[in-house]
């Protein structure tokens, strides 16, 4: 190495930082903007395919089940619970970051654990919802034959009802639009992947907090950056919720 930097050298001599942000937080913001475009592309694609289809399933009918409630018709109840859990996990994340500002390690640990728990509960709910959709079979009229199928990424039973045609006491439907399963599993899966990444990131933060890394560094900014990501994942869910469940 040709040069030696004298000890105690001041790295940043540029005066006031332009956004009064560290480069790390700036990078996280820009990354989130970039990721916004990824999700926007997927949701806009979903929109174009949906509006160009003749028929689209009614979410009040598709998402009307609740664990342990059998066939009770509870439209959107379960997804509301999921959304509530995810939003609460954002609240606990805010509290973790807040404790970080106060340099209170115990507090950060506690609220990070709650956030991780919220994330895992959300993922668990999503796993139940997917499993229910995939394994719960319904009679569908395909090529003149009645078949019992679940809703997967490539086929589903959410088409229009065939008037007067019953199968073992259940109304027979036509196959639903293929695009429904495509986009539902594709986009909620991609979002779930983001939640998983977020949970892993929070677990990493938890261990770093525990071994005192941020106390030694003198600030909890890393937790704040993980928090930004977590809130973003939460915000994206609001749009996914809007586009798939409410509209």
């Amino acid at each position: 190495m040709a040069t030696h930097i004298p000890a105690g050298y001041k790295w940043w001599t540029g005066g006031k930082s332009p956004y009064n942000l560290s480069y790390g937080k700036l990078m996280m913001w820009i990354f989130l903007m970039s990721d916004t475009f990824t999700f926007a592309a997927l949701l806009i694609s979903y929109g174009t395919i949906r509006v160009s289809s003749n028929y689209w399933p009614d979410p009040n009918y598709v998402f009307n089940t609740f664990p342990f409630m059998g066939d009770a018709n509870l439209p959107l109840a379960f997804v509301s619970l999921m959304t509530f859990i995810l939003i609460m996990s954002s609240v606990t994340m805010v509290l973790a970051v807040h404790e970080g500002h106060k340099m209170n390690r115990r507090g950060v640990e506690k609220w990070l654990l709650w956030t991780i728990l919220g994330g895992l509960m959300f993922l668990g709910c999503q796993a139940w919802e997917w499993t229910h959709l995939i394994t719960h079979v319904h009679p569908v009229l395909i090529d003149g034959q009645i078949k019992e199928i679940g809703a997967t990424i490539s086929q589903n039973h959410f088409g229009a009802a065939v008037p007067g045609l019953m199968h073992e006491g259940h109304q027979v439907h036509l196959p639903g639009p293929v695009g429904f399963g495509n986009f539902f599993f594709g986009i909620t899966g991609f979002h779930g992947f983001h939640v998983t990444t977020g949970v892993l990131l929070n677990v990493l933060m938890y261990f770093w907090v525990r071994n005192g890394r941020f106390d030694r560094l003198g600030h909890y900014e890393m937790v704040e950056k993980a928090g930004l990501y977590w809130h973003f994942v939460d915000l994206v869910w609001v749009f996914v919720f809007l586009c798939f469940y409410l509209i």
Partner: peptide, 8 residues
């Protein structure tokens, strides 16, 4: 290497 110095 960062501008941490300026902020904190």
């Amino acid at each position: 290497m960062s501008n941490e110095a300026a902020i904190h």
